[in-house]
Design a binder for these strands. Structure first.
Lengths: 215, 215
DNA sequence: TAGATTGTTAATCGATTAACAATC
DNA sequence: TAGATTGTTAATCGATTAACAATC
């Protein structure tokens, strides 16, 4: 009995479940049925039950799901019960936005250091003294951060990515507009802002195709 | 003969085609086959031909596609040959990052004004004098921007969204962690950074499920 | 026990891939 | 004309939805 691969579509819905469960937990609601979850998330009850069952039988017939338990299970599945050491590459606009984003620390993400090159090295931005990207390799060997956040110009991204992989990084959150090449034991998640914006303009100009809020 | 709806999956691939075509056009390459495009994009040749044929027969049997022509067609399809007036709601980290992001203006996106409330009103950030969100409604009536970028805290997002819709906004690029409710003639595109980050940690913790760079 | 709701199997729907005739 | 490669139809694959037996 080999576990069957959980599809990307399912994985992308987990944060949504987590978010809504947090909201109803805060309201003091104890139990919830797939039908009620359907009403607030806009997904079908059937899909919700299918999705959750990939990870275990968290519900109970005739009762539904215990909100607190389900939320905590999903938290574990996503892996946000742990804490992570992250570094940021690039202290431009996006780098700064992430440095300063309170939401992360509270979810167990610790931005331990920030790298850039040239003039910027040594500057202090939001409590971070910018480190020299030329010394990245030694840094990785010594400090073993798990996550690297790429917020540097497109042209430099692949090169830095290679060094990150070499240095043992486990996950890369990439904000540069490139499809980075890396071995598949290092996880890549892209935030391609330009592609997102283009999707917006596409639908503004082709309203007929717009599926509504299904994305 | 009614046009059949173009699926979200196809629409999300258009920016990718656009980006790679730009790259090979810069190299001075004149023609390209679906097979060559397959090699650089990682998509199958069959899928590429299917995708492009949703929008017209841009290719030629025995020849392939003319790079410049195809790129320019996709540009029109996505709608980035036009220019857009955009406003930003919120001058926090993300608001600032977008204000300052050069890539946008060059693609025809003009950030004409930035709104916030309280102390921040009247401040000057990157050439923008922050306007009062309380005066948003009059502003919209007068200036008719097409795109609004929501970069304010989650709790306030829906309310501001309602006013944007009321004021005739055509597209919303939303950075707040909420599923905004709006009529389906207003286009919504979300950038949910927390969900993206959770996808990263999920796969870091469940490498078996990781599909590689298929997203 | 009766009612509710899950977990799970089967049916449907949609998207991707394969194949090939059309045609440059 | 022969070779190449598209446009398009058909086959396959996968994801979503529907249905219902299991069970709390």
């Amino acid at each position: 009995m080999t576990k069957t691969r959980v599809s990307l579509a399912v994985v992308k819905r987990l944060p949504k479940y987590y978010r809504y469960l947090g909201m109803i937990e805060e309201k003091g609601i104890i139990r919830v049925s797939s039908q009620e979850l359907s009403a607030i998330t806009g997904l079908t009850a059937s899909q919700i039950r299918q999705d959750l069952n990939h990870f275990g039988g968290f519900g109970q017939q005739g009762y539904g799901y215990n909100v607190e338990e389900l939320r905590s299970e999903i938290e574990k599945i996503i892996g946000i019960n742990k804490s992570y050491k992250a570094i940021i590459l690039g202290c431009g606009n996006i780098g700064k936005a992430i440095m300063n984003y309170k939401g992360f620390k509270s979810s167990g993400f610790n931005i331990v250091d920030v790298f850039d090159h040239g003039d910027k090295v040594g500057n202090k931005i939001f409590d971070y003294e910018i480190k020299d990207v030329d010394k990245l390799d030694e840094y990785l060997a010594e400090n073993k951060p798990e996550i690297a956040i790429i917020a540097i110009p497109t042209e430099q991204a692949q090169k830095v990515c290679d060094r990150l992989v070499e240095g043992g990084i486990k996950g890369i959150w990439n904000f540069a507009s490139v499809d980075l090449k890396l071995p598949k034991n290092v996880v890549l998640e892209n935030v391609h802002l330009d592609e997102s914006l283009y999707t917006l303009t596409y639908y503004m100009n082709n309203l007929f195709d717009y599926p509504g809020t299904k994305n």
